[in-house]
Simulated scan of single mutants.
Amino acid sequence: MKKELVVGLLVVTVLTGCSAQAEQDEVIETLHVKWDNPIEAGKYLVTITGCNDCHTDGYLMMGGQVPEEDWLMGSAVGWRGPWGTTYPTNLRLRVQEWDEETWVKTLKNRKALPPMPWMNVNRMSEEDMRAIYVYIKSLGPKGEHVPLAISPELEPQTPYLSLFPQNMPVATSQK
């Protein structure tokens, strides 16, 4: 009888935890930036969420001192890791190719290769996703498409940053 009670309490605890997590996720996804102008809200979000860090060539190395007219054009500098080599998309062209609904649906559901933090983007509120879309669209098309991702066994022909872990501790088996 005690075993069933313990198992029952464990199930209730797990379900309560899942319910609390679901409620927390719902709250997170309904929070959004309040701004009178969606373009300004989008610019703010692009800035604070680090979109430029990858999607704007040289942004990190120049301490963010890249003119806004050159933001979000992607980069031919790849990110190489165990998954292969990926390139930050030219978002200025992407928003010209997609309507707002496709943008939101993609940001809500996409699971793709690193280093893009899709797990975080997926949780963004729809209002914020739309503000980012409107902002990027307001910048207008500019630049070229970036290379497609390549598999791990291929050597990139473009510059790339390595994201292979170095000096990792040796895993020990636990007994």
Rank of each mutant, 00 (worst) to 15 (best):
G58N: 14
V77A: 00
S75Q: 01
G58I: 00
G84W: 07
R80T: 12
D70G: 07
D70K: 14
R80D: 05
P67L: 13
G64W: 11
L72A: 01
W83R: 06
W83A: 09
Y59K: 02
V66Q: 08
Q65A: 13
M62D: 10
V77F: 01
W79K: 11
V66D: 05
S75C: 03
G74F: 02
G84E: 10
L72K: 04
D70M: 12
A76L: 00
Y59E: 06
G74D: 00
G64Q: 08
D57C: 00
E68S: 08
R80G: 01
T56P: 05
P82Q: 15
L60R: 15
W71E: 02
L72R: 03
P82D: 14
P82G: 12
T56F: 00
G84Y: 09
V77S: 01
G64M: 10
G64S: 11
A76H: 04
G78Y: 02
M61F: 11
A76G: 00
G58R: 09
L72I: 06
W83G: 06
V66A: 08
P67N: 13
Q65L: 14
G81F: 07
W83P: 04
P82Y: 12
E69S: 15
G64C: 07
M73C: 12
W71N: 06
W83C: 06
A76C: 00
M62G: 03
G81A: 12
L72Q: 04
G63V: 03
E69D: 13
P67Q: 14
G84A: 09
A76F: 00
E69I: 14
R80V: 02
V66W: 08
G64E: 10
E69M: 12
G74S: 01
L60T: 13
M62E: 13
M61V: 12
G58K: 12
P82R: 14
V77P: 04
L60Q: 13
G74W: 00
D57Q: 13
G78N: 05
M61W: 10
P67I: 10
D57A: 12
W83S: 10
M61D: 14
T56M: 09
G74H: 00
M73K: 11
Y59G: 01
T56Y: 05
W71L: 07
D70T: 01
G74T: 02
S75W: 03
L72D: 01
E68H: 05
V66L: 08
V77I: 12
G81T: 06
V66F: 07
V77C: 05
G64D: 03
S75K: 03
Y59S: 06
H55L: 05
S75Y: 07
